[in-house]
Simulated assay, not measured.
Amino acid sequence: MSAETSAVAARPRSSLNTATVKHASLAEAVAAASRAGFAAVGLWRDQVQETGPRTAARIVAEAGLRVSSLCRGGFLTADDDAGITAALDDNKRAVEEAAAVGTSELVMVLGGLPGSTPGGPPAPGADRGLVAARVRAADRLADLVPFAAAHGVRLALEPLHPLFAADRAVLSTLGQALDLAAPFPPSVVGVVIDTYHVWWDPELAAQVARAGAEERISSYQVCDWALPLAPDALLSRRHVGDGYVDFAAVTRWVAAAGYRGDVETEIFNEDVWRADVDATAATVLERYERHVEPHLGP
């Protein structure tokens, strides 16, 4: 570890998802995370592909950090042969990239309705069969499980807020994610608990406990939900503590469920992206220390 990147002792379970500093390069994001005192980073595939997985792994390791997860695989709802083949091929590449950068957790966003336009209206004649789309996603997941298992990678199913059911994720609740994971070993299919997406769920406490009992928790991701939402709801995530999420309660539930892994802060927000990278990293870690870490338990 260089002198530049070792000035602050790392918080042992803290992870900065590089989407939080979207306009920084992978090297810049990793360096900022290390300077701030994070222990890990969550990576995105576009940056990993730009540098190459081996180079990405080296950048992280040389900064004294580890990779908590890779985002993302998924988008498994295609209803035509070409779309199914393309989705399986892309997800196999994602599994290989996750293994190459040194993480066992590949975050999976299952995709919306075929013909949907992220953030926009459906294409003419678009399929509106939500139940059928979920069935196809389950079928594709089954296709991928043997490949993921062979590479030592867990497919981490992330439910998204129902706002995104049409265009990004037909999986909306933690309970749905656990039901989808149930046929497969917990070492190969897990779930992501992302506060932005699940804080509202009246069954959240029970489903977090279930996820722990089933040994399915792959990742705990934090950011806040505040109003008004941005014109693009995807970019409405806020710094922890700036919105309505009860981080003390949710974190205690996650800790009680037995989760001992990294806690990633992942924020999509234009104002946060425009801010200085080091200032953002410092704010993220301070909010983690204040609102999350005290409730993680020993």
Rank of each mutant, 00 (worst) to 15 (best):
A94K: 03
G102F: 00
A126W: 02
N91F: 11
V41S: 10
P114W: 04
G125Y: 09
G73V: 01
L65D: 04
I59N: 00
R66G: 12
H23T: 14
L16P: 04
R72M: 15
R93Q: 10
T20M: 05
V95F: 07
V48R: 03
G42D: 08
P118K: 08
T85E: 10
S14Q: 02
I59E: 00
D89C: 12
A94E: 04
S34Q: 09
L76Y: 01
V8W: 15
A123R: 07
T20A: 08
R35P: 05
A29R: 06
A24M: 12
P124V: 07
F75E: 07
R93C: 06
A31G: 12
G112D: 07
A27L: 14
G119W: 00
V8P: 02
S69V: 15
T51R: 13
P53F: 15
T117C: 14
A24Y: 14
A36W: 03
V107K: 03
A63G: 01
K92V: 03
G83D: 00
L16F: 11
V67C: 10
F75P: 00
E97S: 04
A63E: 10
V30G: 05
A99E: 15
P53G: 10
G52W: 05
A126M: 06
E105W: 07
V60L: 10
R66P: 02
G111E: 03
A57F: 09
P118C: 12
R93T: 12
V101A: 11
G74C: 14
A63S: 14
A32M: 14
D79H: 07
A33G: 10
T85K: 11
V21E: 10
R54I: 15
R128L: 11
A126I: 11
L65P: 01
V107L: 01
R13H: 06
S6Q: 07
L16H: 05
A24F: 08
A39E: 04
V21G: 13
A123D: 04
I59Y: 01
M108Q: 14
L70E: 15
V107N: 02
R66D: 02
